Amino acid sequence: MYITTEGVKSERAPEDSAKITMQATGALSWRKADVKYRKNEAFVDVIEDVNLLMSATGAVLRADVTGQIIMRAYLSDQDGLQSLPSGNRLGSKATKAAAGSVTLEDCQFHQCVKLGKFDSDRIISFVPPDGEFELMRYRATENVNLPFKVHAIVNEVGKTKVEYSIGLKANFGNKLFATNVVVRIPTPLNTARITERCTQGKAKYEPSENHIVWKIGRFTGQSEFVLSAEADLTSMTNQKAWSRPPLSLSFSLLMFTSSGLLVRYLKVFEKSNYPSVKWVRYMTRAGSYEIRF
């Protein structure tokens, strides 16, 4: 802190000021005092977007996960909420936890998190804001679990036809299922007509997007489905070679994480020891999930 003729200025960051306020008054800048609920509940959503770029030969060129932990806390302050730790099976670049730990990078936490506890014990301990907030965000680049494997065979027959055979297999357990699975398969600009057939779901050619769109509403784990198609092409003068943009995949998958992150327990500590309802949910979605052919 330093003093000028214009007044007092401080070099302290806002979070430092918040810490001073808490130490002096016991107040938390992110939480209202005397919050009351009839039913005390805590919900945790671990949401991950998995990104993939695979070569035409099946080599993984890029695979990573961007994740966030979203919390909804509806907890009373009857005698002062102490902390709400969620022990996680995870590690870091510097210090890995026990065998089977998950390596996370670029971890960012809400200001309510006690960072020392996380560094020493891999436990996220905090006094939560009231309502919904982002507790943590992270990245993972090692040992990424890919929910789907795509096998694409695309042959150009002269300048008049393209033949497709697209196989899609679920790599997750048979008790899980993905929803809203959509595969977008590029077609040449001079496509005149498409004939397609698939073993599951529905496929449709969308000329405005130059794609065959294959939709599967529910995809059970360990299942494998195939789409076959033929594209008839019109002849064009000064025709350029087809650039073959990658096919893309989108989906949502509950109770699965591509990073392997697992919340081992979720506990609420409050002096009056009131009962609380606690839920943990996982969701993995496609970020940029692309396969070249």
Rank of each mutant, 00 (worst) to 15 (best):
I3M: 08
E6G: 15
S10L: 06
S17C: 11
M22L: 14
T25Q: 07
L28P: 01
S29A: 14
K36M: 10
Y37G: 02
Y37N: 13
N40Y: 05
M54K: 09
L61D: 07
D64N: 13
M71R: 06
R72S: 13
R72Y: 11
R72M: 09
Y74F: 09
Y74L: 15
G80K: 04
Q82P: 03
S86L: 15
N88P: 00
S92W: 07
S101R: 03
S101K: 04
S101V: 07
E105N: 14
D106A: 14
Q108S: 08
C112F: 01
K117W: 09
F118L: 14
D119R: 15
G131T: 06
E132I: 14
E134A: 04
E134G: 03
M136F: 05
V144R: 04
N145C: 08
H151Y: 08
A152C: 03
I153D: 10
V154C: 10
E156F: 07
V157H: 03
K161D: 08
S165D: 10
V181K: 01
T187W: 04
R197E: 11
C198T: 14
Q200E: 13
G201C: 04
G217P: 04
Q222T: 15
E230F: 06
E230N: 14
A241P: 10
R244E: 11
S248H: 00
S250L: 01
L254P: 10
L261E: 04
L262V: 14
L266D: 11
L266Y: 11
L266F: 13
V268T: 10
K271G: 12
S272Y: 05
P275V: 09
K278W: 04
V280L: 03
M283V: 13
R285M: 13
Y289K: 01
I291D: 00
F293P: 00
